[in-house]
């Protein structure tokens, strides 16, 4: 790998770590600032490659809907996050899949520990971010999260993944 690519990888990793920190610590506004105007937040359900026009997803949201989600979480009556999940995730296996002028596609994996009401749940998945390089740093154009258990019964997934 050429040195300039290593530099890009390092920068992308730092971005993903920051995103993880904002999600873990429920810093909703700071997390929202990471998104591009034409955001797409996609968490498929049942299968990783299900066409969202004809298949239900866990999350398939544009910027407006992401904002709705955060508005709800910031309020006092999102009961499934009262108390909030305590979260800690490890982001790893970061790889640049594609790097064009101003656009980087990066894949990574995460192991996420969640503790809520004395129960610990482990969530595992793979993320694919499409990042735009802007004057204000990277912005997320698309984020697709492939949960390892996206075809299994799940409890409460109302925190940010």
């Amino acid at each position: 790998m050429a040195l300039d690519n290593l530099e890009l990888l390092k920068a992308v990793e730092q971005f993903l770590y920051s995103e993880a920190e904002y999600m873990d610590s429920h810093q909703y506004d700071r997390w929202f600032e990471l998104w591009d105007e034409q955001a797409l937040y996609w968490v498929p359900c049942n299968a990783d490659e299900a066409d969202p026009n004809s298949n239900v997803a866990l999350i398939y949201e544009n910027r407006d809907k992401i904002e709705d989600r955060l508005f709800r979480l910031k309020g006092r009556h999102a009961h499934a996050q009262n108390p909030r999940s305590r979260l800690m995730r490890v982001v790893s296996n970061v790889r640049i899949a594609q790097a064009d002028a101003g656009k980087v596609v990066v894949t990574s994996q995460f192991v996420l520990g969640e503790v809520r009401l004395d129960r610990q749940t482990v969530w595992i998945g793979r993320s694919q971010h499409t990042l735009l390089q802007t004057a204000n740093g990277f912005k997320i154009r698309e984020k697709k999260v492939l949960l390892l258990n996206n075809d299994s019964p799940m409890g409460n997934l109302t925190f940010l993944i």
Binding site: P52, V56, A80, M154, T158
Partner: peptide, 29 residues
């Protein structure tokens, strides 16, 4: 139309499912 059916899916996801705004609160209660 496919658009109406896609809209039905998006409406569903917004309130129902593990990561939605509605049914997880039912489960919590």
């Amino acid at each position: 139309s496919p658009e109406i059916n896609a809209l039905r899916l998006r409406q569903h996801e917004s309130f129902y499912g593990p990561a939605s705004s509605g049914s997880p609160d039912d489960g919590e209660i």
